[in-house]
Write a protein that binds this DNA or RNA. Structure first.
Lengths: 210, 210
DNA sequence: ACAAATTTTTACCAGTTGGACAAATATTAG
DNA sequence: CTAATATTTGTCCAACTGGTAAAAATTTGT
């Protein structure tokens, strides 16, 4: 019998193992080649199994992609959600930057998968962007507005501040090739995430100080 | 006779016209679908000509892509090149941000084409990144270092400052779908580039003030 | 141990895609 | 106007790709 894709129904040990291996391999390939740029064969090869066997677990190529995106979005929102209304504003923003930068370093493939999806017009996650993500950004924007009113932050457009944090941090995952090409073989290349963290924290602390 | 692709040899009127139409169409499709995601037929359809006719001007799909990338890189470096050693540091940085933001608004397709290429590991422009781009960044980094030594800028890692400007400005082209999803139908969506410019200038002026 | 259910393999196919080729048509130079 | 040259079209194909179907092998529950 065909297994129900990613459903809540009980899955066998083998199913769990193989689905995990497949998604891991799919992430690797999708994130570097894009959706249309990857072939099922590539994923199958990376997963060490035959194409029909892979298709036994995910009936269509799109199913793997969708599964990865769904899984991703939850983790993606977490760092922003953790921004604490009770904390010290500048400290909270620094912590947010650090968390995002850590994610860029630890999960560059996820970042690139996301970037690929957005670049192509977000056909598979448009609703979530307009739904969950938008609501979260609205909520945190209000929080930042409050901080500004309390003179704890310099006046600024909260939404665009958030955008700029996304941009600068994800850049280190998405544009890593470019960054490494520029930093070249020097010592700097090894410390790029540290260096980025220092520079960004300095920029935002001074830039947003009331 | 087959025309020499993008060579310096004399080209007929028709050649010039058609090559332009083709590249324009190719940019449109490549930038939204990625390299592997676009088919020659799509480009041909967009250019209003038959596939074999298109292949008469560009023998391979890759030739169009390469032509676009080569053309792009020159324009891409221009705004940074214009950064004036004789100017007022904070003013020069603001002007650079504004120029980059203008490019993101005016040429989002070029930005996305570039982003796609980098995301996939920059297979076609690695050399240029390590060559021309790196040299330019080195040069401008030294300039910024000088400004810092002259106490005209707060201490910061110049290279990472440049990266952050790239990231924040290009973000408005590359992640436009996401930004629009979040700003939604509100008035804000129309003024997003203005708002971004204001926010970024404030951030960098305060953040880098010595 | 044995039947039932699950997993894997083998063989296959239809649609798409990049690209070749030569014939037909249009343009230009003399 | 004609010959040479440049452009366009129609036809074709081999490789690739997503996906199917059924048989074979393996695992699992009892």
């Amino acid at each position: 019998m065909k297994p129900r894709a990613a459903s809540t129904q009980r899955r066998t040990r083998i199913q769990k193992e193989n689905e995990e291996i497949i998604l891991e391999s799919a992430l690797e390939i999708f994130s570097t080649n894009g959706f249309r740029g990857t072939t099922i064969d590539q994923i199958a090869a990376a997963a060490g199994m035959s194409k029909p066997n892979l298709l036994y677990y995910f009936r269509r190529k799109e199913d793997m992609h969708q599964a990865l995106l769904d899984q991703l979005l939850t983790n993606w929102l977490a760092p922003l959600e953790e921004m604490d209304p009770g904390g010290e504003p500048l400290e909270e923003i620094c912590k947010y930057i650090r968390r995002k930068l850590e994610m860029a370093e630890k999960y560059p493939r996820e970042s690139r998968l996301f970037a690929n999806e957005i670049l192509q017009g977000a056909p598979h996650i448009k609703e979530q962007l307009e739904g969950a993500l938008r609501e979260l950004v609205d909520e945190k924007s209000m929080l930042i507005e409050n901080w500004i009113e309390q003179k704890k932050l310099a006046p600024c457009d909260p939404r665009h501040v958030i955008f700029s944090i996304w941009a600068t941090t994800q850049h280190y995952a998405d544009f890593d090739v470019q960054i490494c090409a520029i930093l070249a073989e020097e010592e700097r290349i090894k410390t790029r995430f540290e260096d980025a963290a220092k520079m960004l924290e300095g920029l935002y602390v001074n830039g947003l100080k009331p």
